[in-house]
């Protein structure tokens, strides 16, 4: 019965996404042409990959704010490593980022510090390191070698290599969180830290895994996008966090941890992409995009909080045992 109510929740979100889609599809032919859909999918890759990682840390009851800076750093590293080849470079960068994330998770667990506080520090520091590593200059793939990166813009119907990477990552994360012990542990510690500990869940492992995956995905996003563009700027991706977080929240990842699904993240992601892309494509000024994104997010989280509070009261009322009027012996 609860399974169906969970899917009802997802259906509601899907409905919201479709409404946003339809509203813009009425005005924009590119919303239903194959090339347009492909472009929409491509536009979701960057924030989508990052949102998957942010979702994991949020599910674990933590929060990784450093993803934007890390993606920028990853982009710089990927372009610097370009001479070893496109895919080796991506793999090395993702591994390095995963290691950084694991270390971050380990420290957060070891010190026992609030991860939002800790990652504010790393958010500043990673950006600084990106500037340092790049010598404060945009890093370029040599123009004569740029053809090597064409492999990243290959197309298969409405899918490109990049959007396939997004969906592959989403599928893997989905499988990981649903069907593996380690993935379920992330849900467990987010839903009840002390309960999980008492039940024997090793808290450190899921925290490290969540942060390692979050960093790896941010690294993958930064590396892919930078190599595709053939250049990386140390200042890029600073508004990434907002969109990733918005995708998670609209997709139903709970701010309190333990709840949410990867399918929801994808729904939230496209909801926000349809909105942002649509408003920009209509030629509306920036403030319209900004206001629409912010208001949508505020409405969603406030409504969700109110709804959750009401549901909690309802459950409490239901749980109250029926009074048995009987004078005890």
């Amino acid at each position: 019965m609860k399974v169906s109510s969970r899917s009802a929740d997802l259906l509601g979100r899907l409905g919201l996404m479709l409404i946003v889609y339809l509203v813009f599809a009425l005005h924009l032919p590119s919303y239903y042409s194959p090339a347009g859909v492909a472009a929409l999918l491509d536009s979701a890759v960057l924030s989508g990959l990052v949102a998957l990682g942010v979702a994991l840390t949020m599910i674990a009851g933590e929060m990784d704010l450093s993803v934007g800076s890390l993606a920028a750093l990853a982009g710089i590293l990927a372009v610097k490593l370009f001479p070893i080849g496109v895919f080796p470079s991506i793999i090395v960068v993702v591994l390095v980022c995963a290691a950084i994330g694991a270390l971050q998770g380990w420290l957060i667990h070891r010190i026992g510090i609030n991860s939002m506080i800790f990652t504010v520090g790393t958010l500043i520091a990673f950006r600084g390191i990106a500037l340092l590593v790049s010598g404060e200059k945009t890093q370029l793939v040599p123009l004569e070698d740029i053809a090597a990166t064409d492999i990243l813009i290959g197309k298969f119907g409405i899918f490109s290599v990049l959007s396939l990477a997004l969906f592959a990552a989403a599928a893997l994360i989905f499988a990981f969180t649903r069907w593996t012990l380690w993935g379920r542990e992330i849900f467990a510690i987010g839903g009840g830290r002390s309960e999980s500990r008492a039940a024997g869940v090793p808290i450190r492992r899921p925290i490290m895994i969540a942060f390692a995956l979050s960093a790896a995905l941010a690294g993958l996003a930064g590396a892919l996008l930078s190599l595709k563009a053939g250049s990386a700027s140390p200042l890029s991706y600073d508004s990434l966090l907002l969109e990733a977080v918005a995708a998670c929240l609209i997709g139903g990842i709970s701010l309190k941890g333990g709840k949410g699904s990867i399918v929801g993240v994808l729904i939230g992601l496209f909801c926000i992409r349809f909105l942002v892309t649509g408003i920009a494509a209509l030629g509306a000024p920036f403030w319209a995009q900004s206001l629409a994104t912010g208001l949508l997010l505020i409405i969603v989280i406030v409504a969700e909080a109110i709804f959750a509070a009401a549901a909690g009261r309802f459950r409490l009322a239901m749980r109250r045992p029926a009074p048995i009027i009987k004078v005890p012996a």
Binding site: M63, L241, L242, L295
Partner: peptide
């Protein structure tokens, strides 16, 4: 943190 992140885009838009 999340709530003010959302508000920041609204304020910037305004």
């Amino acid at each position: 943190i999340i709530t003010t992140l959302a508000f920041s885009t609204v304020f910037r838009g305004l």
